[in-house]
Design a binder for these strands. Sequence first.
DNA 1: ACCCGAATGTTTGAGGCACTAACGTTTGCC
DNA 2: GGCAAACGTTAGTGCCTCAAACATTCGGGT
Lengths: 157, 157
Amino acid sequence: MENPSEETPPRWEGLPSRLLGRTADHARRLVGEAFSSVGARGYHYRLLATLEEFGPASQAALGRRSGIHLSDMVAAINELTERELVERAPDPSDRRRNIISLTASGRRQLRRLEKRLAECQDQLLAPLSPEERQRLVELLSRLSDHHDRRTGTLIEP
Amino acid sequence: MENPSEETPPRWEGLPSRLLGRTADHARRLVGEAFSSVGARGYHYRLLATLEEFGPASQAALGRRSGIHLSDMVAAINELTERELVERAPDPSDRRRNIISLTASGRRQLRRLEKRLAECQDQLLAPLSPEERQRLVELLSRLSDHHDRRTGTLIEP
DNA sequence: ACCCGAATGTTTGAGGCACTAACGTTTGCC
DNA sequence: GGCAAACGTTAGTGCCTCAAACATTCGGGT
């Protein structure tokens, strides 16, 4: 959205959904650029971080934990194995499964991404005071949680 | 992101950029469903609303005002003309231009979309009190503006 | 011991939004 | 008159999310 700004912005720019979208796009761009400067993208960070936090896991489990669709796991894991940030090994006790685990350079890459990501948070929230940042996070958490509950976990018989 | 929720969420879910992304995705989904139930999508609403607010305009001007990339105008306008919500007429005084204008049913569709959109804002902000909603909007506006200024309007010689 | 349902990994495809690059036409200004 | 700029158009990329179909494998119940 590289709007060369001409005249006054339309009314609908003030709608919460729109503000949320615009701000999220800014954040996505910041993070996207930071990640792509080291050959990564959002999914890569999520997977590496989830692997480090929970340890090796099957692709399906990893996908559930990191909120990535099963269909997108294959490509993402392929990209990570190409870069040797992750290893894909068959599970001897269950031949359906691949066990994904972090490599040493995967862990190093994760450190890099975390660093870049932290810098992004600061750029993103630059205009806000510490208290304001905290309040924003709190409000967003409430919204996010609320809508998670009414979509995510609905596994009825 | 239809995460069937398994175990505890990863740490990175609490990062501002991520919360923003998740919440924006929820909002996008809400609005997307509301719009698609009447055969529209985000670009359509933006264009119709901008047309009503500023009047007929060329595709380029319309694109700048609505924040839609020139390259995406063609398809979007095509979709709107197919549905007869908009008219594309050559500008007699400048043969490069098409003048886009709202039709009567375009205006009716806009009313529908606005109604649905308002309902979405309410669902989106459901867990927040009126004061909290206002504070959220204020914080997001500050962030959005700040990042607009440092990307959007940089047209140097 | 067997069968059937469930889980797993995979491929293919889709959609929305944003953006880049290239091209031919037309304008407007110098 | 010539040249830069604007306009519309096409084609293609990227990211993130999701749906549908498939073959393999596991596991629980009978």
